[in-house]
Amino acid sequence: MMDFHTVILMVIGALALADIVRMVAGPTIFDRLLCFNVLSIKVVMAMTLYALMTNQSYMLDIAICYTLLSFVSTVLIAQFIRTRGML
């Protein structure tokens, strides 16, 4: 019998997989950036849940760093496209 948190982690993984399919199939690069933004939120959700499952809080520090890094990379790529490569 599976745990409640394991089922929740599997559902988050299925949603992330559907998101990756949309990222590969997206017609423009802005769709791919949006899917990356959504996917990083899914990863932060999974990290927080995993920290609760193992009762260790080091995964939460990684989640804080991941939130900031995904924000910086999304804004950097968006500005790179907006200025057509001349940052």
Binding site: L34, N37, T74, V75, Q79, R82
Partner: peptide
């Protein structure tokens, strides 16, 4: 999250 959405939209 709203800031990055705004950056993508402006781009």
């Amino acid at each position: 999250s709203p800031l990055s959405a705004h950056a993508i939209l402006r781009s």
